[in-house]
């Protein structure tokens, strides 16, 4: 029972923290993107446009909730909620400091991969339930992409699992705190595995350059085409949550999570997470979208074989006692 209370308390705290970070993340993204294009970004609402995310959210919530006449009402309403739940659920097992963790699951990595894989269902429900050709095409692309990129993602995540010999994320972080960060040493399976993880994570959260599922120029807005108001807000939020939680996961698995000198663990974890978050937006506003076939070729002919090789290398590293 004690554990239940602990989980509920910390879960609420972490979820609130993530959602507030996202509000500021939206502001940061708009500002950062503006500067990259030598624009100013938001300036009007609040000092330096700081209140812009709130204006955005209020605007979105005010909008009329439109449901297409021939939509599958149940699926259509369920999809955005499920999307947020699935993307927030991953955060449950990520340790933000030695003690701040909602649920220290023994099989944390499996939980992350499983819940991450569940994202397919809201995508499908939205695409199918909208009864719109663009939404359905977007859903098909998104599912194809997330199934394909699930493979390199699992392979990349398995590298720290094999190196540390633990399936629990807090165990992996503790191991790194004791020895070394995986992105730094052993550099050969570690750093490339991180790169593959990063790319696969971008693909799973449909970020540029992997945003084929919602390619504006061809699919209007993919699965969110028919969504308005609060439901659209939920999808929008789920995407940002996915990105932020993915960054936290990357920081925990490859950069030692809360491990760092001079400062409390939480500070380090937040710093690392936000660094990866910024990196994602840097990539997003710099690169072009892949074509669908390039996307699949990158996944199946590059990332997957390299991932298998990295897994073998890390197994060999452990077997021949490279750890100590």
């Amino acid at each position: 029972m004690n554990e239940l209370v602990h989980g509920a308390l910390y879960g609420t705290l972490i979820a609130t923290a993530i959602l507030s970070t996202i509000a500021m993340g939206i502001w940061f993204e708009r500002k950062f993107a503006g500067r990259m294009q030598q624009r100013l970004g938001p300036t009007i609402v609040g000092p330096a446009g700081l209140l812009q995310p709130f204006a955005d959210i209020i605007k979105l919530l005010q909008k009329e909730d439109i449901v297409p006449r021939d939509a599958d009402r149940g699926l259509f309403d369920l999809a955005p909620i499920l999307a947020v739940v699935c993307s927030l659920g991953v955060a449950a097992v990520i340790p933000f400091s030695p003690s701040i963790i909602a649920s220290d699951l023994d099989v944390g990595v499996l939980w992350v991969l499983g819940i991450g894989g569940l994202m397919v269902i809201p995508t499908f429900a939205a695409g199918w339930g909208s009864n719109n050709k663009f939404a359905l095409l977007g859903a098909m692309r998104a599912i194809a992409q997330s199934v394909s990129y699930g493979v390199p993602l699992v392979l990349a995540v398995l590298v720290p699992v094999v190196l540390s010999g633990s399936l629990s994320i807090s165990g992996i972080v503790a191991w790194q705190a004791q020895h070394h960060w995986f992105a730094v040493w052993p550099i050969v399976p570690g750093l490339p595995a991180f790169v593959i993880f990063f790319l696969a994570m971008l693909a799973e959260s449909n970020r540029i350059p992997f945003d084929i599922p919602e390619a504006e120029s061809e699919l209007v807005a993919g699965i969110t085409t028919e969504y308005t108001g609060a439901k659209f807000t939920l999808f929008y939020m789920a995407e940002y949550v996915h990105t932020l939680v993915g960054s936290a996961l990357g920081a925990a698995l490859f950069f030692g999570g809360w491990d760092g000198p001079f400062a409390p663990g939480l500070h380090w974890m937040v710093l690392k997470t936000l660094t990866l978050f910024v990196l994602i937006y840097w990539v997003r506003w710099s690169l072009l979208r892949f074509r669908a076939d390039q996307l699949m070729r990158l996944c199946w002919t590059w990332l997957t074989p390299i991932g298998v090789a990295l897994l073998l290398v890390s197994a060999a590293w452990v077997t021949f006692g490279g750890t100590n």
Binding site: F32, G34, R35, M36, Q37, Q38, R39, L40, T43, W282, V283, W285, S286, L287, L288
Partner: peptide
């Protein structure tokens, strides 16, 4: 090209914006 794109945007991010409000 990827490296070039990333460098360009990062350099731009620290330039003075040209926007006139």
């Amino acid at each position: 090209d990827t490296a070039k794109a990333l460098r360009t945007t990062m350099v731009n991010a620290f330039r003075e914006p040209v926007t006139q409000e």
